[in-house]
Nucleic acid binder design. Structure first.
Lengths: 356, 356
DNA sequence: TTGCGTGCCGAAACCGGTTTCGGCTAACGT
DNA sequence: ACGTTAGCCGAAACCGGTTTCGGCACGCAA
């Protein structure tokens, strides 16, 4: 209701000019006299004229929009990082007055088909993919469609597209190193399904950390579960019920680590004292866990911003293979890590009081 | 690069028909013979034709897009509910193949101006506003613009627009009732800045709960701070350092409650034993707090879906004032609530052992 | 045979902008 | 005084669809 917002035609009529003149005046074409340019611009923002973006973009030939593909799994333990990522993306896009679309693949259609529709319908100039699988079909699809995209995370072979990631392998080497230095020799791994590349990477890091410290790899020490707190509880339960249980646990996410803490409490085991636990993510909430969770924190404040800038560069024509940004996670020690103690029901190792 | 995706003209040429015929065939106009209709549709999805949405929407006259306005404050304690809300909104929109835009007001432009640009540029058919202020100028702006919108939350007077909210006042009455039943007579309130309507509502509920239980209102018992964990810690600190400190705290968000727990621990006070704490939100993380946080949980799983459906109805012409959906929060008891104990450094009340 | 619907498709206007091109006017040099 | 050249603006095509309208060809009844 009310009149439709003023369009170019109305503005032109109001000024006694043609639409083409007005358009060029507003877009700073050199063939418009300074006088009329000024007159046009004044009238424009006096009447509150805003160019219709659909029309403009149709004409321009670019949708001036990028899309963020939301990771599926939501539910009660929602993804806390989504908001931050969107904020960063939005910041990058705002500088150009581009729009940010979010899309979760329509369940009835399927991921791939839904992506294909999105790009073929000309709605988006680029796409952000989150948390890729080890061999993610979406990557190949986007490449075959010739549509610019960036990945938050990596796939198994990740040399021919742009990505931003935190080095999960390095992080888990660091975590294992830290635990080994505290005297732990039997370290359990709580992981996520290996179809996710991040899960594989972190497992690799765990393995490398083990051998780097001369520790044996025992298959029973790695437990895979869904990356929820319940998953962590279940996995930790299995590990602690082993004949000789580990004296430390590294967990693929903070959420799983929090779940692991529950399993320890349920068995009367004191995290950080009897058994060490290290998570991954650096979630703010970990500070309030019982006890406060030691974790490998990733610097994800800027992930969205970086991804946005990368994507825009690629849309501008830059070579996607040039953008590989690998950040490092760092250990934030809270209270769930500590030296190994003798009363752990397992091989007795010499107690040592490491300094913290 | 590559050929531009097939457009209507190409498809028509391929078929030896005109664009208008093909368009009408695809849109099931009755004046197209079943034979050619079928032929057209087959060719269309064989060539992978997808109508250009910018062009289509320009022609149709509606952007088929709604926008979610992200709440500003992000930072480390990101909004966990944003992802859930977006998922719900997306679900509702997907059924019509509408798009979901997210926008955080450009800091350099300002909320209002940025909203006005958004709707005047014809990009969106509706807007979702989150966490409104007591007297939120965005609501009036949208009304004066004549653009459909829904609000997640309410403002002070909320009868002339559509909203979905959880009854914070009722929730805090419930919380205070619960505490009073446990014997608490000196209950502190940890609140957020009262410019936010939700903060005011919950304070109102607290007050009503007090008088409903015949408890005195003491100004020093209500502390306002930023709604972060640090804010909660600070506010709780002030309250616990009072000459006669409260035996229970109700907090306006779970995040603040977690912060409050820190303040208690720092003073050697055992939450749930010496002093009760009740949060609000029902955050999943509260389960892993120390001790697990009792909270008023809001059923926000469906908020996004409901808001989306409401907004679409309004866009379809329904009366916005018809949509007022008020949900109730419910107490989820974990471990930070308990009967008042005598050793609390304050007026001795008769101990009573309430049943749990 | 003529006339008249009816079924089916093409022509063209339109959505609201952008951009190329051409022409008019005034100032300029010679 | 006259041709040239900027400077400035209008005309028109275009982006890729949708939708109204008109007309051709056919079948049917008179």
């Amino acid at each position: 209701m009310g009149e439709r917002s003023v369009n170019l035609k109305a503005l032109a009529a109001h000024l006694g000019l043609t639409v083409s003149t007005v358009s060029r005046a507003l877009n700073n074409y050199p063939d418009i006299s300074p006088a009329t340019r000024k007159r046009v611009k004044q009238a424009a923002d006096q009447l509150g004229y805003r160019p219709n973006q659909n029309a403009r973009r149709l004409s321009i030939g670019t949708p001036e929009t990028v899309c963020y593909l939301m990771p599926r799994q939501i539910g009660p333990n929602a993804q806390p990082f989504v908001a931050q990522l969107l904020a960063g993306l939005g910041e990058a896009l705002n500088e150009r007055n581009w729009d940010l679309l979010v899309s979760q693949a329509d369940a009835s259609v399927g991921d791939l088909a839904s992506i294909e529709r999105l790009v073929k319908s000309g709605r988006i100039a680029g796409l952000v993919i989150s948390r890729p699988l080890k061999n993610d079909p979406r990557v190949k699809l986007m490449q075959s469609l010739g549509c610019p995209f960036v990945v938050h995370g990596r796939t198994e072979k990740s040399d021919d597209y742009a990505w931003y990631d935190v080095d999960g392998e390095d992080a888990f080497v660091t975590a294992v190193n830290h635990l080994a230095r505290l005297g732990h020799r039997r370290i359990g791994f709580i992981g996520a399904p290996l179809q996710y590349q991040f899960a594989q990477e972190r497992l690799d890091g765990y393995m490398r950390g083990l051998s780097h410290n001369g520790l044996a790899q025992a298959p029973e020490l790695v437990q895979i579960a869904e990356f929820t707190d319940e998953g962590g509880t279940a996995a930790a339960g299995l590990l602690m019920d082993l004949a000789v249980h580990p004296t430390a646990l590294v967990c693929v996410t903070d959420m799983m680590a929090l779940g692991a803490l529950e399993a320890l409490h349920a068995r009367g085991i004191m995290p950080g004292k009897d058994v060490s636990v290290i998570g991954y993510d650096g979630l703010h909430f970990g500070k309030h866990a019982h006890p406060p969770l030691t974790t490998m924190a990733q610097p994800q404040a800027h992930a969205g911003r970086r991804l946005g800038d990368m994507l825009l560069s690629i849309i501008d024509g830059a070579d996607p293979t040039k953008f590989h940004e690998l950040q490092r996670a760092h250990l934030v020690q809270r209270s769930t890590d500590g030296p190994v103690t003798g009363n752990a029901g397992q091989i007795n190792v010499s107690e040592r009081e490491d300094s913290r």
